[in-house]
Amino acid sequence: HMTFVALYDYVASGETDLSFKKGERLQIVNNTEGDWWLAHSLTTGRTGYIPSNYVAPSD
């Protein structure tokens, strides 16, 4: 899985979304859904959809 880092805080707007904090590391499970990607937080262990423009590839 690709690892990304959150650029901003995001508060989930629905049950399927994943809240995260700036700097949180996320594994992308599925990024074929356009602007919303299914991600797994390496910080909280939770999985949900995130806005793709809130994250950047982590080196």
Rank of each mutant, 00 (worst) to 15 (best):
N31I: 14
S13C: 15
I28C: 07
Y49Q: 05
Y8N: 06
T44Q: 06
T3D: 10
L42F: 08
P57E: 09
G48L: 02
H40Q: 13
P57N: 07
K21M: 10
I28S: 04
A12Y: 02
T47E: 07
L38C: 09
N31H: 12
L18I: 12
L7I: 11
M2D: 11
L7Q: 06
W37P: 02
A39W: 01
D9N: 06
H1W: 11
E15A: 15
V11Q: 12
D59W: 14
N30C: 12
F4G: 04
G34V: 12
T32M: 12
F4H: 07
L7Y: 03
N31C: 14
E33M: 14
P51A: 02
P57C: 08
L26A: 00
V29A: 07
I50G: 00
H1Y: 13
N31F: 15
L26N: 00
D35P: 11
A56S: 10
T47C: 12
D9G: 04
Y8T: 06
T44K: 02
M2N: 12
I28D: 00
E24T: 02
K22T: 07
K22R: 10
S52D: 02
S13L: 13
T43V: 13
E15R: 09
M2A: 12
T16N: 14
S52F: 08
G23R: 02
N53K: 12
Y54F: 13
T43S: 12
S41D: 04
F20P: 00
T47I: 11
V11E: 14
F4C: 11
E33A: 13
G23D: 05
D59N: 13
V55D: 02
A12N: 05
Y8M: 11
A56M: 12
R46Q: 12
E24P: 00
T3W: 14
T44W: 01
G48I: 01
N30F: 09
F20Q: 00
E33Y: 12
S58I: 15
Q27L: 15
S58N: 09
G45S: 06
R25T: 12
N53H: 13
I28W: 02
A12I: 03
G34F: 09
L38F: 11
E15W: 08
E24H: 04
V11S: 10
T43W: 09
N31L: 12
V55A: 05
T16V: 11
Q27H: 15
G23A: 04
D35W: 10
W37F: 06
A6F: 01
A39I: 04
V5Q: 06
E33V: 11
K22F: 04
A56C: 09
W36A: 04
R25Y: 15
L38T: 03
Y54R: 06
G14E: 09
G14H: 13
F20E: 00
R25M: 15
T16D: 14
Y49K: 07
T47V: 11
A12E: 04
L42V: 08
Y49I: 07
T16I: 10
L42C: 12
D9S: 06
T3A: 08
N30T: 08
G14P: 03
L26P: 00
V5D: 05
G45C: 09
K22Q: 08
P51F: 04
H40A: 09
F20C: 05
L18V: 06
H1N: 14
P51M: 04
G45E: 05
N30W: 08
Y54P: 02
Y10D: 00
V5A: 03
T16K: 13
G23E: 03
F4T: 05
A6R: 00
K21R: 13
G45P: 01
E15V: 11
D59A: 13
Q27S: 09
S58G: 10
K22H: 05
S41I: 03
R46W: 07
S58W: 14
E24S: 02
T16A: 12
V5K: 05
S13P: 07
G23P: 00
T43K: 11
G45I: 01
A6I: 02
T32D: 13
N53I: 10
Y8D: 07
L42A: 06
L18K: 01
Y10G: 01
G34K: 15
K21Y: 07
Q27A: 11
T3N: 07
A12K: 05
G14S: 14
T32A: 12
L38W: 11
T44A: 04
D35Y: 14
T44E: 03
L18F: 08
W36M: 10
S52L: 04
W36I: 07
K21C: 11
S58L: 15
P51E: 01
G45Q: 07
M2H: 13
E15S: 12
T32E: 12
Y10E: 00
K22G: 03
K21H: 11
V5T: 10
H1P: 12
L26W: 02
P51H: 05
T16Q: 14
E15M: 09
P57D: 06
D9P: 04
E24Y: 01
T43Q: 10
I50M: 02
S13K: 14
H40S: 09
V5F: 07
A39N: 00
D17R: 10
F4V: 15
G14Q: 11
G48T: 01
V55S: 02
Y49L: 13
V5Y: 08
V11A: 10
D59Y: 09
Q27Y: 14
E24M: 01
L38A: 03
M2P: 15
Y49N: 05
Y10V: 02
V29W: 13
G48V: 02
S19F: 05
H40D: 03
N31Q: 14
L26H: 00
D59I: 13
Q27E: 12
K22D: 01
L7G: 03
N31S: 13
N31R: 14
D9T: 06
M2V: 13
Y8C: 12
H1K: 13
I28Y: 02
Q27V: 15
P57G: 07
T44S: 12
L38M: 08
V55W: 04
P57F: 09
T43P: 03
A56F: 09
D9R: 01
E15P: 15
M2E: 12
S41K: 02
P51K: 05
T32W: 09
W36S: 05
Q27W: 14
T47A: 06
A6T: 07
G48K: 01
R25P: 07
N30P: 05
L26Q: 00
T32N: 09
R46N: 11
K22A: 12
P51I: 02
W37V: 08
G45K: 06
G48H: 03
W37K: 04
